[in-house]
Nucleic acid binder design. Structure first.
Lengths: 169, 169
DNA sequence: CGGTATCCCATTTGATACTG
DNA sequence: CAGTATCAAATGGGATACCG
């Protein structure tokens, strides 16, 4: 099977690789969150090749993660702006940065996320139950939804009957 | 500048692309969360080429995201198990799946995350302040930590002075 | 079972030059 | 400013065969 087939399956995690799986894309989004709006600024800040940047921006616009609008102040300029969808990525970006800082950067703290109003650090992103309790990996499980493909459903059932510790390890 | 240089900078978000940026890696982790432990099972479930899988597993072990242990039941078999670091990715995976389900899969619900004990759906992953309030993009900002590289620090300062809406758009 | 080695091929990147 | 066009080079995936 080829990569593409897996990604086209009904798994949302697979589909998300379209976005964050592409090299540079996460960095482009970071820039957008940092306030970068213009093609040339993305290029300069990231040092990305112009053709690659062009393709990435197009795709992000296609996916509705960036909005391409003509600047109001300078009619010749174009601005790439965050959308509701990309703004909704904030918990992911914060979570990724926190996780990376903890497990990949080994104590280095290059970036911290803080609440703008108070300056206080954002607590770790966590999985919580409806009542707010924090949940560990073993407390959580995936179940197939109505649109799951039959293969995945079968796998879930096998996994559940085979062992209780699907998550934990 | 080449891609590698950017990623080697002190940005945790950049470093994280080493993990989730590689094609297949997210899928391998998904499999591990689903209980897959053996080389041949990863291969079969994902349809990934063996050489690629080999490289991915090695890297994940290198990064301490998988632990390679000899099976206790069958001495010849090898098991790849989740580690504390990879288990700590749960909020990210849940968040990504939720986000993808909402913005990429357009109403399709192939997978749902539920609390194992109650079967109730996991609420959306969110950024919260220390007191538990949910924060929006505009409420959050990044600040350079002690180990930030000077360039990023300068950019933050420029961004802050230039506009109040670094995040919002 | 758990890989490694090899080959071929497609894609993609980066650099650069050019355009409206 | 905001791209497009082109090209050489590197990378990286897939398939397959082989090995302890």
């Amino acid at each position: 099977m080829t990569q593409e087939n897996v990604f086209k399956c009904n798994c949302p995690l697979a589909r998300v690789t379209e976005v964050i799986g592409e090299p540079w894309t996460l960095m482009v989004l970071r820039e957008a969150f940092l306030g970068t709006r213009h093609f040339n600024d993305f290029e300069r800040e990231l040092g990305i090749a112009r053709n690659v940047l062009s393709v990435r921006l197009k795709k992000l616009v296609d996916l509705d993660l960036l909005e391409r609008v003509r600047s109001e102040t300078d009619r010749r300029a174009v601005e790439y702006r965050l959308t509701d969808a990309s703004r909704d990525l904030l918990p992911i970006l914060v979570g990724l940065a926190q996780w990376s800082g903890k497990w990949l950067c080994e104590g280095h703290s290059a970036t911290r996320f803080v609440e703008r109003a108070t300056g206080r650090e954002i607590p770790r992103i966590a999985v919580r139950a409806v009542d707010g309790r924090e949940l560990a990996a073993r407390d959580v499980t995936m179940v197939p939804g109505p649109d799951a493909n039959p293969e995945l459903v079968a796998r879930f059932e096998r996994a559940v009957t085979a062992a209780g510790d699907v998550q934990g390890g």
